[in-house]
Design a protein around this nucleic acid. Structure first.
Length: 269
DNA sequence: ATGGTCCCCTGACCGC
DNA sequence: TGCGGTCAGGGGACCA
């Protein structure tokens, strides 16, 4: 499912095709995503795209008259296709350009396509988001401060998008493993030094995933239609019961907040 | 305010 | 081969 690296990969993939170009029209085949696609979207015509940006897991297509906000949910993807390619099942929307369209596909329909004429970062979905993983203010001191009154598991904490954006379940598992911190640790027990390490491993795992083009999980495809291949590099996620890559212990698999969590009891304290 | 649970949806997978 | 059950998962909504 798309996490930040997949969204970043998608963003980069459509950027060149969109920036400075005109979206002639938007075809909506099925508006029933997580929220209904606003009817205003299908009425938009000839939008000049100024920029394509990412904020957290949202893709922002900024035009002269407003911003299209796209979230890929769990199974969403954007692909470049030539405009005569027939839409298949789950291809819910097309952003039609000259000779080309950007096709939104989302089998599970957890994603969203929204429209705002206000500055996009003031949108209710975006306004309360936390740091980007590479922000200067994403520091150990910041995490310590945010964590000091919290008693949830550290894994939940780093997946909280109001703390830091873009760390979904897969990368939370991976980053905690690399940091040698147990996902079960109660948030307010982590020390400054541990937050420092965790910041580094979060950045490391996300950066690597972006370089590799995003994790392939079931139905994820990069915009060009290529499969990402980070999944083969995952150290713990999806490997419950297998051997720890670092020691001879078996990897534990327990749910935390209903999310599958894999870790090594021996390596992660 | 904080934390816990539910739910949206479909495809993959598993056991019979 | 077919079928039913279970699971996964982002994140808003809702409740204690």
């Amino acid at each position: 499912m798309p996490e930040l690296p997949e969204v970043e990969t998608t963003c980069r993939g459509i950027q060149a095709a969109l920036e400075g170009k005109i979206i002639k029209r938007i075809v909506i085949r099925n508006p029933n995503l997580r929220w209904p696609i606003p009817s205003a979207v299908s009425k938009l015509k000839n939008l000049t795209v100024q920029a394509v940006k990412r904020r957290a897991k949202y893709i922002l297509i900024i035009t002269h008259s407003g911003t299209i906000i796209i979230h890929l949910g769990m199974s969403g993807s954007l692909k470049l296709v030539s405009d005569n390619v027939r839409a298949e099942k789950h291809d819910h929307a097309d952003f039609v350009l000259e000779n080309l369209c950007i096709r939104y596909r989302d089998p599970r329909r957890f994603g969203a396509i929204l429209w705002t004429v206000n500055p996009p970062l003031t949108h209710p979905l975006l306004s309360a988001l936390g740091c980007e993983p590479w922000d200067f203010d994403f520091t150990a001191a910041y995490l310590l401060q945010r964590a000091k009154n919290k008693k949830i598991a550290v894994k939940q904490f780093i997946m909280d998008q109001s703390v830091v954006v873009g760390v979904g379940n897969i990368y939370a598992n991976e980053a905690l493993f690399l940091a040698k911190i147990s996902p079960l640790r109660v948030t307010n027990t982590l020390e400054l030094k541990e937050w420092q390490i965790l910041i580094k491993t979060i950045q490391q795992v996300l950066k690597k995933a972006i370089q590799l083009g995003g994790t392939t999980l079931r139905d994820f495809k990069a915009p060009e239609g290529k499969l990402g291949y980070f999944s083969q590099k995952l150290l713990v996620y999806g490997r419950g019961g297998e051997l720890c890559p670092c020691c001879d212990a078996l990897l534990e698999s327990v749910p935390i907040a209903k999310r599958s969590t894999v870790f090594c009891l021996q390596c992660q304290k």
